[in-house]
């Protein structure tokens, strides 16, 4: 049994992706007397039972916690409940996707009908064909299915691509997200990021008006998205193991 007595969102994440937040919470955990020998174990078990589930009190999914027991005193509840209440301070990592939030995830399956994405390694999302903007065209290239942008040749989404998409709805029970690729600032992350840089790069080289150098730079830039992609993957894995 767990009760949150107060709950405040802390630093709303320097994390790049929206939807993740770190929160400070004052909690009261009610422990059964039979667990009184191993209180800290009981507390951890209680908190662990909340992991990867949507919790209304937190308004999000608990991904990780760090807990401090406030004092050695516990409040024994009188009456029929023999439980005793322990006050805790906990640091919580929460995932709370909301409509119109931008999330990032990895494409695991792609067909003409839909794109399936996994976010942070545990939550799944689907983007159906009607939520993919007309710019993207479904193709098969060398037996590989992909969505390619009609206006930007390099903008391609296929299995393994990290994409940024908009949340349309979130099923709190299954942690299933319905997403959308309608807005222009959604799509393959490496293309989006690279595109931004390209534009600034373009500005710079335009002022210097040295086209050839720009060409070289571009090829150089062309390699960054890959390494950036790797970086994302790594940090994601890291996060999962931490969890």
């Amino acid at each position: 049994m767990l009760k949150s007595s107060s709950f405040s969102l802390g630093h709303q994440s320097q994390l790049k992706m929206k939807g993740l937040s770190v929160a400070d919470a004052d909690l009261v955990v009610y422990v059964h007397p039979s667990k009184s020998r191993k209180v800290s174990q009981a507390i951890l078990r209680e908190l662990s039972s909340l992991l990867f589930k949507f919790n209304e009190a937190f308004d999000g999914v608990l991904l990780a916690y760090d807990v401090n027991i406030q004092d050695k005193q516990a409040k024994i509840l009188s009456g029929v409940h023999p439980y005793f209440g322990l006050r805790l301070k906990a640091n919580l990592l929460l995932f709370s996707p909301k409509s119109d939030m931008l999330l990032e995830g990895k494409v695991v399956k792609l067909s003409q009908e839909s794109i399936h994405v996994i976010i942070l390694g545990f939550s799944s999302a689907i983007i159906t064909a009607q939520n993919i903007r007309g710019e993207f065209k479904y193709k098969t290239k060398d037996e590989e299915e992909l969505f390619a942008s009609r206006s930007h040749k390099r903008h391609v989404i296929k299995v393994g691509t990290m994409i940024r998409f908009l949340v349309k709805s979130f099923d709190e029970e299954i942690l299933h997200i319905i997403g959308s690729l309608m807005p222009a600032h959604t799509g393959s992350i490496c293309w989006l990021d690279w595109n931004l840089e390209e534009i600034s790069e373009f500005d710079r080289s335009a002022t210097k008006s040295r086209g050839r150098e720009w060409q070289e730079d571009k090829t150089f830039e062309g390699t960054t998205p890959l390494s950036y992609n790797n970086h994302i993957k790594k940090s994601k894995k890291h996060r999962i193991t931490e969890d």
């Binding site: 990867f52 399936h116 996994i118 939550s123 799944s124 299954i174 942690l175 299933h176």
Partner: peptide, 10 residues
């Protein structure tokens, strides 16, 4: 469970 990582839980 490849596409829905939390499916085994359910």
């Amino acid at each position: 469970s490849d596409y829905i990582p939390l499916a085994p839980l359910r």
